[in-house]
Design a protein around this nucleic acid. Structure first.
Length: 442
RNA sequence: CGGGGCGUAGCGCAGUCUGGUAGCGCGGAAGUUUUGGGUACUUCAGGUCGCAGGUUCAAAUCCUGCCGCCCCGACCA
C-alpha cells in the first residue's frame, strides 16, 4: 500500500477529549473517528488491526471445535421475554420499535437467540456437544462510555455458546474455551491471566475473566508471579481429552489470581513476597458456565440416552476484539506512539522512501515492496513528498514493527536501514538481504 | 445517575469577566527554499462562534431553555 494513495488521517496534536494512551493514539494514528459517545467509525488502519485480531480469534475458536455462525444485531423482544431478561436487563439494553410498533432490541449479547437456534434444530444428546460462535457488533447503552473503544457503547464481540448434556460435559466445553483463550491471547502478543470472576447478570457459578497487565488498566489485579511464565498450550493441545483439559485448567487456576472485587488479602499475603504481583489489568475475555439458566425457561431440551427429555447445560464465552485493539496499545506504546505486537500490526513493514521522485530510492522501494509482498509481508510505503522527520514521526506513531528506510545516501552503496520499532535498533543492510532479515524476525 | 468541566476554521487554542467589523499556531492549496528525526518564508482558501429564544442601536461576549462531548464517582465485555 502506498501512503500517498491511502486514507490515513494523522493528527499532529492530541485531541483534548482523549486522556488515556490507547484512545489518544488511536485517534492520532487515524484508526478511528468518534461518531457519538461510545460509538466509533473504524478507519482503514484501525480496521486492518481489528480484522487481524478477529482472524486470530476465529482461528483459535475453530481449532477448539467451535463453529462459526452470524446472528443479527437486532433481535425480537419476545425471545428475551422467554428468558425473563427483557425486563431484567435494564437501561443498558437499547430498545427500539419497528414500523409495526413491534418491540425489538439491539443485542447486548446473544444467549437467547442462540438458544432459539439450538432448540429448533437439536433434539438428541447424540448431537452434543455443540459450540456455536459469532463475531458481531454489540450495543450496551453504558451510562458513561469512556476511553475510546475500550469502553464504548458499540463494540465488536466474539461470543461463543456451548451446549452439553450435563454438567460434566459442560465443564469440558468450558475448559476447551479456557485453553483456547490462553492460546488466543498468546498469539495476539498479549500476556493474559485468567482470574476467577463474579458471574454478574449472566448468572452461573463457574466463571473466569482474562486480564492483560497494563499500567493504565481499569482494574487492580493480584496474582502469583508464576503466571507470567506458565507455558501456553501448544497447537496440538488435546481439546477432546476431558482429563487433559481438566489438568490444564487446574494448572492455570490453582495459583492465586484475583481482581480487586474477588481479592482475598490474607490468601495473597500467604504468597512469598517476591512472588506477589500486584498490578493493573484490562479485561479482554470472560467465560461463564450457567447450567440450565436459559435452556429451562426457553425449553431447549434434548432426549438423553435414557430416553428422557433434559434441558441442556450451557456456557458462554466472550472476547472483545475492539477492546483488544485498545488494550494492546495500552500494554505496548511509548512516547512516540504505538508499538504493535507483530501478530496484529496493521502492516508488517513500514517502508520509507526518503526522497520520492528520485529514481534510485523509488526503484529500490518498488522492488522491496514486490519482494516483501511475495514473502507474505504487508507493506505500507511512505512515498509522500514530506520531510524525512515527518515520515519518521508518522511511522513511529502508527507503530509498524519493522521500518525499512531507503535514502539516497544508503542506496548509493546499495544499502538500506532496517529499524526495529520496539527497540529502536537500526541496522544497515544490502537491499538483497532485507527479506531474509524480516523472515528471521517474524 | 451524583459531582465537575468544555463546545469559536480540519486539529489545538485565545477572545467572553468589561457587548462595538472573529484572531493565533498547526494542518490544507499555490510558490520559493530545504532534503536522514515534525525546515523556513510569501500568498491564498477556510467560521451558521453547539442550537433556539430573549435583552440591546449592537451579542462569540449578558439572560433563559435545550443539545452535544469529556473527566471523577457508582455500574459494566
Amino acid at each position: 500500500m502506498r501512503l500517498s494513495r491511502y486514507f490515513l488521517p494523522i493528527l499532529r496534536d492530541n485531541p483534548k477529549e482523549a486522556e488515556i494512551a490507547s484512545h489518544r493514539l488511536m485517534l492520532r494514528a487515524g484508526m478511528i473517528r468518534q461518531e457519538a459517545a461510545g460509538i466509533y467509525s473504524w478507519l482503514p488502519l484501525g480496521l486492518r488491526t481489528l480484522d487481524k485480531v478477529s482472524k486470530i480469534v476465529r482461528e483459535e475458536q475453530d481449532r477448539a471445535g467451535a463453529i462459526e455462525i452470524l446472528m443479527p444485531t437486532l433481535q425480537p423482544a419476545d425471545l428475551w421475554r422467554e428468558s425473563g431478561r427483557y425486563e431484567a436487563y435494564g437501561k443498558e439494553m437499547l430498545r427500539i420499535k419497528d414500523r409495526h410498533e413491534r418491540d425489538i432490541l439491539y443485542g447486548p449479547t446473544n444467549e437467547e437467540m442462540v438458544t432459539g437456534i439450538f432448540r429448533s434444530a437439536v433434539k438428541s444428546y447424540r448431537d452434543l456437544p455443540l459450540n456455536l460462535y459469532h463475531i458481531q457488533w454489540k450495543f450496551r447503552d453504558e451510562v458513561r462510555p469512556r476511553f475510546g473503544v475500550m469502553r464504548g457503547r458499540e463494540f465488536l464481540m466474539k461470543d461463543a455458546y456451548s451446549f452439553d448434556l450435563d454438567r460434566a460435559g459442560a465443564e469440558h466445553s468450558y475448559a476447551k474455551m479456557f485453553a483456547s483463550y490462553l492460546r488466543t491471547f498468546a498469539r495476539l502478543g498479549l500476556k493474559a491471566i485468567p482470574m476467577r470472576a463474579d458471574t454478574g447478570p449472566i448468572g452461573g457459578d463457574l466463571s473466569h475473566e482474562f486480564l492483560i497487565l497494563a499500567s493504565t488498566g481499569e482494574s487492580e489485579v493480584f496474582c502469583h508471579r508464576a503466571y507470567l511464565d506458565l507455558p501456553t498450550p501448544g497447537e496440538d493441545v488435546a481439546f477432546d481429552d476431558p482429563v487433559a483439559m481438566r489438568d490444564l485448567m487446574k494448572r492455570w487456576t490453582s495459583l492465586y489470581a484475583a481482581t480487586s472485587e474477588m481479592h482475598d488479602k490474607a490468601a495473597f499475603e500467604a504468597i512469598p513476597e517476591a512472588d506477589r504481583v500486584s498490578a493493573r489489568g484490562i479485561e479482554v475475555g470472560h467465560i461463564f458456565y450457567f447450567g440450565t439458566k436459559y435452556s429451562e425457561p426457553m425449553k431447549a431440551t434434548v432426549t438423553g440416552p435414557d430416553g428422557k427429555e433434559t434441558p441442556v447445560h450451557g456456557g458462554s464465552y466472550g472476547i472483545g476484539p475492539s477492546r483488544v485493539v485498545a488494550a494492546a496499545i495500552e500494554a505496548s506504546h511509548d512516547e512516540a506512539g504505538i508499538v504493535w505486537p507483530k501478530a496484529i500490526a496493521p502492516f508488517d513493514v513500514g517502508l520509507i522512501d526518503l526522497r520520492p521522485g528520485d529514481g534510485a530510492t523509488g526503484e529500490a522501494c518498488a522492488r522491496l515492496e514486490r519482494e516483501l509482498a511475495a514473502a507474505g509481508f504487508d507493506t505500507l510505503l511512505d512515498d509522500r513528498d514530506e520531510r524525512p522527520g515527518a515520515k519518521f514521526a508518522t511511522m513511529d506513531l502508527i507503530g509498524l514493527p519493522t521500518h525499512v528506510i531507503v535514502g539516497p545516501k544508503g542506496i548509493a552503496e546499495g544499502k538500506v536501514e532496517v529499524k526495529d520499532r520496539r527497540t529502536g535498533a537500526k541496522e544497515s543492510l544490502p537491499v538483497d538481504a532485507v527479506v531474509a532479515r524480516l523472515r528471521a524476525d517474524h
